[in-house]
């Protein structure tokens, strides 16, 4: 897989193999299938990090789910020299009175997840739950209930399965630890 990283990124070790990821995502998908029986579920993936997790997870969910994507970014704002975080790609599906599951690649402080959750709450869903492939529970600042977490992680810098380093490495089929941040 050196070609994926083009030799520019130094990997220390593989943290979660392709097989481990597949097995865990299958478990999560089955759990979600049980939990949302008979409920109208809209799954909202957060671009771009969650794309691989989202596509694998939804294929293990045996329910008629609807799938949408949401993106956020920093937008210049006249009232703030730093700009503000805003939704850059909103969902198209109406989630009013529906069950919503947000799919993230990784939750560390939870700041961005909290932001996305609060934006979606404005659309009047019945309930919003959170799922993430990776969760660092020791760093979680915000009081956000994460219902489904693939693996717990520590502070190491990770790449692969949606996680990138300068936009490279998302398409690695496993999750690896980087030797250093840059």
């Amino acid at each position: 897989m050196n070609s994926v990283l083009d030799g520019k990124i130094d990997i220390k070790k593989v943290v979660f193999t392709r097989e481990e990821i597949e097995a865990r995502v299958k478990e999560l998908g089955e759990q979600i299938t049980r939990d949302y029986q008979g409920k109208e579920l809209v799954i909202v993936g957060v671009v771009k990090g969650s794309l691989y997790f989202l596509s694998d997870l939804t294929r293990y969910i045996d329910l008629p789910v609807k799938v949408d994507l949401i993106g956020f970014g920093n937008i210049p704002d006249t009232t703030s020299k730093t700009g503000v975080v805003k939704i850059t790609k909103d969902i198209d599906i109406d989630i009013k009175d529906k069950y919503v599951l947000i799919v993230e690649d990784v939750i560390r402080t939870g700041l961005t997840t909290a932001y996305i959750k609060s934006e979606l709450e404005k659309k009047g869903p019945k309930e919003i739950a959170l799922s993430t492939m990776l969760l660092n529970p020791n760093r979680l600042l915000m009081t956000i209930p994460v219902k489904y977490a693939g693996f717990e992680i520590d502070d190491s810098w990770l790449i692969g399965y949606g996680l990138d380093r300068h936009e490279i490495g998302r398409n690695l089929p496993y999750i690896a630890e980087l030797n250093k941040k840059d």
């Binding site: 703030s80 730093t82 700009g83 503000v84 975080v85 700041l111 909290a114 932001y115 609060s118």
Partner: peptide, 9 residues
Amino acid sequence: AKILDMYNI
């Protein structure tokens, strides 16, 4: 505080 503002929190 600026970071929180940026996230509209």
